[in-house]
C-alpha cells in the first residue's frame, strides 16, 4: 500500500492505496465521491471525468498513486457555495439535459472545461468537446443546448 495525499474538492485527503488502484476507485470507494462514475472499461464513456491539476481527465485512466500531491476536482465541487446550482447546472436543468443522471457529472466536468477554454461555443465545437462523454438517455441534443445557453448567459 502507498500513502497518497491529494486535495479533492478543496479538502486535503489522505489515503492508502494499492499501486494498481485507479483514481476513480479511490475517489468513489474511499471518499464516497459520487461524481465520477464507471460506465465502461475502455476509457470511452467519460462518466468518470474529473479535473486533475486543472486538466480534464478520465479518472479511470489514471492511477490513484499518480495523483499523489495533486489536486482533483469532481462534479461535487461545481455547485455554488450555498449549495445552489451553478449557471451550467441550472442550464442543464432548464434544458432537460439529463435523464438518468449517470453521465451527468462527467458531462458537467467536460462542459465546464470547454466553457473555460475560451473556444467559441458553436454547435460543432460543443459536439466535438463532448466526444469523450457518452450519454445513452438524452441523445445529446439538450446537452448541447444547455451548454450553449450557459455560454450565452456568461457575462
Amino acid at each position: 500500500m502507498t500513502e497518497i495525499n491529494v486535495i479533492v474538492d478543496g479538502k486535503q485527503e489522505t489515503g492508502a492505496v494499492q499501486d494498481r488502484t485507479l483514481l476513480v476507485h479511490w475517489l468513489r470507494d474511499s471518499l464516497d465521491k459520487r461524481g465520477p462514475k464507471i460506465g465502461c472499461d475502455t476509457g470511452n464513456c467519460g462518466a468518470c471525468t474529473v479535473r486533475w491539476d486543472g486538466q480534464l481527465v478520465k479518472s479511470c485512466m489514471v492511477l490513484a498513486v499518480q495523483a499523489d500531491g495533486g489536486t482533483v476536482e469532481t462534479a461535487a465541487s461545481l455547485s455554488e457555495e450555498d449549495g445552489s446550482l451553478n449557471r451550467l447546472q441550472q442550464c442543464f436543468k432548464d434544458h432537460h439535459a439529463l435523464q438518468c443522471g449517470y453521465c451527468t457529472s462527467g458531462m458537467l466536468m467536460t462542459a465546464t472545461d470547454f466553457l473555460c477554454s475560451g473556444e467559441p461555443v458553436t454547435e460543432e465545437a460543443t459536439r466535438r468537446a463532448l466526444k469523450g462523454n457518452v450519454c445513452r438517455c438524452t441523445g445529446y441534443h439538450n446537452i448541447v443546448r444547455a451548454i450553449r445557453a450557459a455560454a450565452e448567459e456568461t457575462p
Binding site: 467519460g46 485512466m61 467536460t110 472545461d113 468537446a129 466526444k131 469523450g132
Partner: peptide
C-alpha cells in the same frame, strides 16, 4: 485526436 480528456494525458 480522440477526445479532450485523452488529449490531456
Amino acid at each position: 485526436l480522440v477526445d479532450r480528456q485523452v488529449r490531456n494525458r
